Simulated assay, not measured.
Amino acid sequence: MRYLLVALGGAVGAPLRYLIDRSIQARHDTVFPWGTFAANITGAMILGVLTGAVMAKVASPDDQFLLGVGLCGALTTYSTFSYETLSLFEAGSRFFAAANAVVSVVAGLGALFVGLAFSQAVF
């Protein structure tokens, strides 16, 4: 049953990531990968809220598989983040490559903690 939950979550997360990426990148005329950044930060915040809900026992282990492993696993993408950072570096945009690496990690952790704090305040 959990395989199905992961598959269902992933079936929503993957196209959602693509839609977020394309809609945000279409609005920015820059080499910085804002779309991937936004998808990753969104997923980190969702995971923080979910973690807080599980800790408060208002979400179940099945919710973790559906939303945490499936949805967030497909929504966030370390491989695209890594590829885009390397591409920026190879294209000579070293500042943007470094900014992408540092800001993505810091903002991702920050979003996770904000989501967790939000969840703990609500639940």
Score class of each variant (00 low, 15 high):
Y3M: 06
I46P: 04
H28G: 01
Q25A: 14
A107Y: 02
E84C: 07
A97G: 06
G9M: 01
G73M: 04
L50V: 09
G68Y: 04
M45Y: 13
F113H: 13
G115W: 08
A107C: 13
Y3P: 02
R22I: 11
S104F: 01
L67T: 11
L71G: 03
Y3C: 03
G9N: 03
A91C: 07
F96P: 00
C72P: 03
L67M: 14
G70F: 00
L4Q: 02
F81S: 05
P15R: 02
R94Q: 11
D21K: 11
G13V: 01
S93R: 14
K57R: 15
F81E: 05
A39W: 04
F96H: 14
V102S: 09
V102W: 02
S79K: 08
A107K: 04
D62P: 02
A56I: 09
Q64M: 14
A117M: 10
Q64D: 11
S79F: 10
A59G: 10
L88Q: 08
V106Y: 03
T30H: 13
G92L: 07
E90S: 12
L116W: 14
A117F: 11
A97K: 02
T77H: 04
V114T: 11
L4H: 00
V122M: 12
T51H: 15
A121N: 03
T85I: 07
I41D: 07
T77F: 03
A11N: 01
V69Y: 03
G35P: 10
F95I: 08
V31S: 14
F96N: 14
T30L: 10
A121M: 06
V6P: 01
M1E: 05
Y78M: 15
I41F: 04
M1C: 01
K57I: 04
A44I: 03
L16K: 00
N40T: 08
A39L: 08
E90R: 15
L47F: 14
L50D: 12
D63I: 08
T76D: 05
F37A: 07
K57C: 10
L86G: 01
T42Y: 00
A74V: 01
A26F: 09
N100D: 09
F123H: 14
R2S: 07
S79W: 11
A44R: 03
Y3V: 07
F113I: 09
T51R: 13
S23M: 11
F96V: 01
Y18R: 06
I20T: 06
F37T: 05
R27E: 13
Y83R: 12
A39M: 08
G10V: 00
R2W: 04
G48S: 12
V114L: 15
L88S: 10
L66T: 07
W34Q: 08
K57G: 14
F32V: 11
R94W: 06
L109H: 10
D62C: 06
R22F: 05
A44Y: 03
L116N: 11
A98T: 11
S104R: 01
L4F: 09
T85P: 05
S23Q: 14
C72W: 05
V54Q: 13
A7P: 00
I46F: 12
Q120P: 00
L16I: 02
G9K: 02
M45H: 09
